[in-house]
């Protein structure tokens, strides 16, 4: 699970949880992989990202060093920012760990790089 995916996930599928965002990450195995850089793709995706959640996730997995705290105002032409975004969103892969609902503490396991967001019937 890449951090771009983490940015999209909520636990408000749990009964009684209103926002459920962002999910905490308890990492057990994190891999950093080379992914082809595509600045046009990033420029289109970044407006859809909750950047403070990106920063928090990066911190949770121990890869927040040097990460800009805010989206650069001119990000579409800012190669340095786009490269930092590329790295944090697409190259950091949580392979094993847990995602944690910020309101209930309910854990969603990530195994073999796949988060499991299923709930038991009584939770939904």
């Amino acid at each position: 699970m890449k951090l771009i995916t983490h940015n999209m996930l909520t636990s408000n599928i749990i009964k009684g949880v209103t926002k459920g965002y962002p999910l905490g990450i308890i990492p057990r195995k994190v891999e950093v992989k080379d992914v082809d850089y595509n600045p046009e793709f990033l420029a289109r995706m970044i407006p859809n990202m909750d950047w403070s959640a990106v920063c928090k996730a990066a911190k949770d997995v121990g890869h927040d060093e040097g990460l800009p705290k805010e989206i650069a105002p001119n990000f579409t032409e800012n190669d340095e920012f786009l490269k930092a975004a590329h790295h944090v969103l697409l190259e950091i892969d949580v392979v094993e760990g847990d995602l944690v609902c910020p309101e209930t503490g309910r854990k969603f396991p990530v195994s073999n790089g796949v988060p499991n967001m299923l709930l038991k019937e009584e939770e939904a």
Binding site: K2, L9, S11, V114, P115, M117
Partner: peptide, 21 residues
């Protein structure tokens, strides 16, 4: 290829983010 995969009932846990996207 780069594909993100999740266990989910339909698009449940992504539904808010995916709105109009």
């Amino acid at each position: 290829v780069q594909v993100e995969s999740a266990v989910s009932d339909l698009i449940c846990a992504f539904q808010d983010w995916l709105k109009n996207k």
